[in-house]
Amino acid sequence: MKIIAVCGMGIGTSVLLKMNAEKVLRQLGIDATVDATSIAIARESRDAQIILTTPDLVDQLQGLPSEIVAIEHFFDLEEITEKLSASLL
C-alpha cells in the first residue's frame, strides 16, 4: 500500500508528517511506506491509496483517486492514529 505525505515543497512539513505517520502505522501493525512529496508532484500521482496532508492544501488535491486525510496537529499521534484507522481499518 502506498501512502504519501504532502506539503508545499516536500522537504519540511511533509517529512515530519511522514515520520509520525510511519510511527502510527507500526503501532497499528500495518505494513505501508509513507513517501514525503511536494504538492506539484502529488497532483500528478495516481497510485497512492491515501494522501496525508494539512487542511490548507486539501482543496488543491481534490480530483485525485486517493483518499485525502487532513491532519491538523502533526505531533498528535492520537489524531493521526484516529484518522488513519478510520481510513484503513
Binding site: 506539503c7 508545499g8 515543497m9 519540511g12 512539513t13 515530519l16 508528517l17 504538492i39 496532508t53 494539512t54 487542511p55 490548507d56 492544501l57 488543491q60 496537529h73 502533526f74 505531533f75 498528535d76
Partner: peptide, 13 residues
C-alpha cells in the same frame, strides 16, 4: 511558499 500555499506551515499549536 506561504503566500502560494497558505499557512500550512503551522504544524502544531
Amino acid at each position: 511558499a506561504v503566500s502560494e500555499n497558505g499557512p500550512y506551515i503551522v504544524i502544531a499549536p
